[in-house]
Write a protein that binds this DNA or RNA. Sequence first.
DNA 1: GGAAGTTGTCGAAGCGCTTCGACTGTGACA
DNA 2: TGTCACAGTCGAAGCGCTTCGACAACTTCC
Lengths: 354, 354
Amino acid sequence: MSGTPTLHAGAAPLAYGERMPTIADVAREAGVAPSTVSYVLSGKRTISAETRARVEAGIARLGYRPNAGARALASASTKIVGLVVPLRTDVNVPVIMQFVAAITVECRRHDYDVLLLTRDEGPEAVSRVVQGSMADAIIVMDVEADEPRLESLRGTGFPVVLIGVPDSPGEFACVDLDFAAAAQLCVERLAELGHTHISLLGATPAVYDRGTSYALRFRAGFEEASRSLGVSGSVHAVGAGHHEVESVVDRLLREEPEVTGLVVHNEAALSPLLQALRVCGHEVPGGMSVVALCPDDIAETQAVPLDAVSIPANDVGRRAVELAMSQLRGEAVEQELLPPHLTVRGSAVPPRRG
Amino acid sequence: MSGTPTLHAGAAPLAYGERMPTIADVAREAGVAPSTVSYVLSGKRTISAETRARVEAGIARLGYRPNAGARALASASTKIVGLVVPLRTDVNVPVIMQFVAAITVECRRHDYDVLLLTRDEGPEAVSRVVQGSMADAIIVMDVEADEPRLESLRGTGFPVVLIGVPDSPGEFACVDLDFAAAAQLCVERLAELGHTHISLLGATPAVYDRGTSYALRFRAGFEEASRSLGVSGSVHAVGAGHHEVESVVDRLLREEPEVTGLVVHNEAALSPLLQALRVCGHEVPGGMSVVALCPDDIAETQAVPLDAVSIPANDVGRRAVELAMSQLRGEAVEQELLPPHLTVRGSAVPPRRG
DNA sequence: GGAAGTTGTCGAAGCGCTTCGACTGTGACA
DNA sequence: TGTCACAGTCGAAGCGCTTCGACAACTTCC
């Protein structure tokens, strides 16, 4: 119907169900072929400034957005990253949230969206997403030493990034804080101040039982550092809840009165721990030195600001996404441990002469 | 090439990049038409038991999974729910995580996956997902009184469920705990015990400034209940961190010494609050009665187990998904406030005679 | 014993996009 | 002035699935 003037409602909010504008509509609107619109959008072929302007005007006028499914089908790329998150309401939920936030933000920067997968769904979720082509890459948090969710992906070359390091990472990209080095830093700090008896108060027993990668690596680093620095050390898992913490503290002070320094790897236990120590007459730092592994904001807002190795959730999350993107570009798989940093805030001092 | 025997590798893990089996492959394998395979999968037409068996065997042998993009394109349904989550590392992160977990699990029960959207992305994220047909429905957490993210959806009929209640929900489905009734329950509990001066220690100031729906409704309910029960009440926002909490407690005890009961709507403040009260000689419950609004596990693991109205994250999350599903079935939009329940654990007792 | 269902299957037409090859001008170069 | 290269555009062929209409082959029922 050339010659017939076309009326347009402008980019008025189109009612749902009302047919969304397609690339063909835009093409008609701009007087070009659909493929030309596609090339304007993707930039994969040169387009004259004039044509581009007309197409862009059409897009704006119609309020056009490419259909994600059609795009995925035609291009074999979904622009979606699958993220396997531990959703159990465990101890370190805020930390997990920081990771998720960092990953999501970074994905958006690369024009990717995030599909949420729970680790409780197990291996099934991963293969559903991969085999159904629902995502272009997968990031797995809270990796265990022996990682069952990934068996189906071994040898497939599908882009995977692990946050944490399993026993045999093999072909998978990994990124995480260097927890072993972090533990060493904590022990060193206390040892330098003159402490010779140091205990690790760790995560809940379940975390160790499950073989959670980072907890094991921190514990191993603690034991290794204690040995090499010649200090005596003990390790205690700490359950959730005020009374759990109190009972661990009671037992520790009773059975190992020589302990003057604590390394704490359990965000949730920090606050009740400080309180329990105070009640028992071992106020921090005078009666007990404490070095923690926790996010900065938690270390800062305790009753006593804590010397702590921070958990660089933002850096790790960002790096994880970058590793995924580099695999999508076909680059080689990397494994990367971020160096720890300890911030001194005053919760560790030389031990009382005894 | 009929007559040529076909060799199959079985459901061996197919290398990524190696062409995934399609519905046509399954059809060939089973000796039927592709549409027949589709009908076996969807159950939308009757299929003989024999044919079904052959098709299912083919699916198993090839390890076939329908391609999500193709399916979305052809059926105009993605089997994905968009979930807008507040990812700021705010106070009540564990609670948010509970909601997310409940929603995700319930979505999976309905064979839906969850696309994670951050509220920091604002309205853009919502329209990207809706207009790009990336999801069939959207659930929005952490709704504000004046909800800007949803303007683009008004009048479109796109399925939306809000967790929380904005000033003008209009056409949108809503579900949440009845925070006003919850506040009333807390005040009633203290009033029945004989308290006549009650303070609300609430969320961080930012939460109120932002107009967060649930915080405002709780505060309004508190004020209304205080008035109607004839008790005097005051309201204090409480910032994050130990020292913030201490300073609020100091000021409260100094400026309103008549207060004998506290209603606390701030999970993160609970532990430092109890500690601060003890330090000031107002041990709970003898020197100060406390009723909280928080998840059960938090109430239980405090130094003093708390009388608390629980936050039924699981129920709300599940209900939100159900409301989304019912909209997808074309049913009417509902708005629903869940009744609060108070569990007595001993942190509130009659005030000292004074 | 033919009309009128049922039941089970097939073929083909899309869904909205990307991408490949082909085609038309145009300017550069010899 | 003929030849090449290249910028700019188009048309058509899929991507893998769903779904509609058609159509055999059986049943049923008067």
